[in-house]
Amino acid sequence: MNEVLLSFDLDHTLMINPFRRWVFPEINRWLQSHFSEEKPVNRLIREHRRRLSNGAYPEAYDWDDILCSVVLEHAIPFTVRELVEKHACVGKVWLFSDVLPAMDRLTQAGAHMVAATNGFTRYQRPVTDCLGLTPYFGGFYTPEEMRYAKPQAAFFQFGKDRQVIHVGDRLDQDVLGANRAQQISVWIYREMPSDLRNLPITERTRHPLFSTCLNHRLHREGVPSAFHETCRPQYIICSLDELLKIWERELMSK
């Protein structure tokens, strides 16, 4: 491997997309005119989870296809893509405050960066364009292009002959996928307790409190305890400000 590539999850790692607060509520209001339950949008969530459980990972993130499969007998007056484009505006989507300063420092240091997300490009690019994130990425890797999705190891084929440092907030997707692909996994955990924050980055995963935080998050994500060790990140950070040190350390080890 002759290069270290930084890849980033997007949702809840760098940014907040409009799905939960805006897109799904609008879909729910329209569905209520056709279905009697209070939250018919949950039909989409159930179909998403069914596809995941059946191993249909890329298809599980195709929200337009999911919507069509749930509402077979009705003409849908919009697409999910159109709703995302409608709501991808300042005030409805936002970045975490550490993102742009960290991306600028990494760019100045010469880091090569890509987006590696389970969200389809048509749902993510309107948001990254709005937030000014898109220019930082030399590639945009998503399930419809890769034909795989995190945590499938094959999703990380975009790395080719490069060492990938993958940064994400999900242990069951980002960390597990990077570990399976034998790449470097970085868990961003902004709620990190101060006892861990005060430790050097290289020592955090050896502290007993780390295992407590890890198990708590894995429980929230619904990961069976038998898989916990495979979801263990190589690094844990509380802010993207710390990522430059990891990139420099891994670069020096090549």
Rank of each mutant, 00 (worst) to 15 (best):
H216N: 13
S211M: 08
V223K: 04
I237Q: 07
G222I: 04
E229S: 10
P224L: 08
Q234Y: 00
T212S: 04
C231W: 09
T205G: 02
H228M: 03
F227I: 10
N215D: 14
F227M: 12
R204G: 02
A226W: 08
P233Q: 13
G222V: 02
H216L: 12
T230H: 07
R204V: 00
I237F: 11
E229Q: 10
E229M: 07
H219D: 11
P224A: 06
L209P: 06
C213N: 14
R232D: 13
E221N: 13
Y235H: 03
C231Y: 12
H207R: 10
R220M: 14
A226I: 10
L218D: 00
I236M: 08
P224Y: 08
S239P: 09
H216T: 13
S211A: 09
R217F: 05
E221R: 13
H216K: 13
L214T: 10
F210C: 05
S239V: 10
G222T: 04
S225A: 10
E221K: 11
P233E: 12
P233Y: 12
L218F: 01
A226T: 13
A226Q: 13
Q234E: 09
T205L: 01
E221G: 09
P224C: 07
P224Q: 07
R206W: 03
P208A: 01
Q234L: 01
G222H: 02
C238I: 06
P208C: 04
T230G: 06
H207C: 08
Y235N: 04
C231V: 09
T212N: 02
S225W: 07
G222S: 03
H228K: 03
T205W: 03
R217G: 06
H228L: 02
C213E: 15
R217C: 09
C238F: 12
Q234N: 05
A226D: 10
C238T: 14
L218A: 03
C231P: 08
F227G: 07
H216I: 10
N215G: 15
N215I: 13
R206G: 05
E203V: 01
H216P: 00
S211Q: 08
H207K: 11
S211V: 12
T205A: 06
G222W: 00
A226G: 08
P224H: 09
H228F: 06
R204A: 03
R217K: 15
V223R: 03
R217A: 14
P224R: 04
E229G: 06
Q234I: 03
N215Y: 14
F210W: 12
L218C: 00
E203T: 00
A226V: 07
L209E: 12
G222R: 02
S239L: 08
L209D: 10
A226N: 10
E229W: 08
R204H: 04
